[in-house]
Computed example of a mutant assay.
Amino acid sequence: MHLAIRRWLTGAVIGVSIVSLSGCGTLFHPERKGQMSGDIDPAIAIANGVGLLFFIVPGVIAYAVDFSNGTIYLPGRNSASVDVHHLDDAMDVAALEKLLSDKAGQPVSLENELVMIEEMDSLDEALAMVRMSGVMDEEALSIL
């Protein structure tokens, strides 16, 4: 009986340590990776805090993993996304501006120096470019 309890307790500690070391937000919401900031998700923060109850190191590592991945933040209203559009060679600048304006819900000018158009080889490459561009560009530009 004593051996069974010890095995169960050892398994529970190992399981909690593995979950804590990987970060709860990273496990529960992998789609949130790459968020730069926002409101902290209380459920993820509490789940990471449970790691602090068992040992300090797993809890601290869980918080570090989730903050570095951006998975501890709630999804924001200002987020970037990628829409795939296959354009034909006959499309001119005016037609592309109209398509982009319709999608964005506001006028888009391709002559603006803040607009960058680049052809990507894959969707993964496009998503990486969106992550690297920064989600909150409006806030950064308002400081200038």
Results as ranks from 00 to 15, higher is better:
Lys33Leu: 13
Val135Thr: 13
Ser20His: 00
Thr71Phe: 06
Leu53Glu: 12
Leu87Asn: 06
Met36Ala: 12
Ala90Val: 15
Ser79Lys: 13
Asp124Phe: 06
Leu21Val: 11
Val93Glu: 11
Glu111Met: 13
Leu21Lys: 09
Gly15Arg: 09
Val93Ile: 11
Val60Glu: 03
Pro42Ala: 12
Arg6Asn: 00
Tyr73Cys: 08
Ala95Glu: 14
Ala47Val: 12
Glu125Ala: 15
Val93His: 11
Gly11Cys: 11
Glu31Arg: 09
Gly38Cys: 02
Glu138Leu: 07
Leu52Lys: 10
Gly49Glu: 01
Ser133Ile: 06
Leu74Val: 10
Asp88Val: 05
Ser17Asp: 00
Gly49Met: 04
Val93Trp: 04
Thr26Arg: 05
His2Lys: 15
Val60Arg: 03
Ala126Cys: 14
Ala4Lys: 12
Leu99Gln: 00
Glu125Ile: 12
Gly23Ile: 02
Val115Phe: 06
Gly15Tyr: 02
Thr26Met: 03
Ser122Ala: 11
Arg32Lys: 05
Val108Tyr: 00
Met1Glu: 00
Glu113Ala: 15
Gln35Gly: 07
Gly134Trp: 04
Val60Ala: 06
Asp83Gly: 11
Asp39Tyr: 04
Asn69Tyr: 14
Glu97Lys: 14
Ser122Phe: 08
Val65Arg: 10
Lys103Asn: 11
Phe67Ile: 05
Asp124Leu: 10
Pro75Phe: 07
Leu96Lys: 13
Val130Asn: 13
Asp124Met: 05
Leu27Glu: 03
Phe67Arg: 00
Ile14Cys: 10
Thr71Val: 11
Ser142Leu: 08
Met136Val: 01
Leu96Ile: 09
Gly59Trp: 09
Ala90Lys: 13
Val115Tyr: 01
Ile46His: 03
Trp8Glu: 06
Val130Met: 15
Phe54Glu: 05
Ser68Ile: 02
Ala64Pro: 01
Ile5Gly: 14
Ile143Glu: 08
Gly25Phe: 01
Val135Cys: 07
Gly38Leu: 02
Leu9Cys: 10
Val135Phe: 07
Ala64Gln: 06
Arg32Pro: 14
Met116Arg: 05
Gly51Ser: 04
Leu3Thr: 03
Leu21Gln: 06
Arg77Glu: 11
Glu31His: 06
Ala45Pro: 05
Gly25Ile: 08
Ala80Tyr: 07
Met136Arg: 03
Ala140Pro: 03
Glu111Arg: 10
Leu3Asp: 07
Asp124Gly: 12
Leu100Ser: 10
Ala64Gly: 05
Ala64His: 07
Ala140Ile: 14
Phe55Pro: 01
Leu52Glu: 07
Ser81Gln: 05
His29Phe: 15
Asp66Phe: 02
Glu118Ser: 11
Leu52Phe: 14
Leu53Arg: 13
Gly105Asn: 09
Val65Asn: 13
Met136Thr: 00
Ile117His: 00
Pro58Ala: 09
Val130Trp: 14
Val13Asn: 03
Arg131Trp: 15
Asp39Trp: 02
Ala62Thr: 01
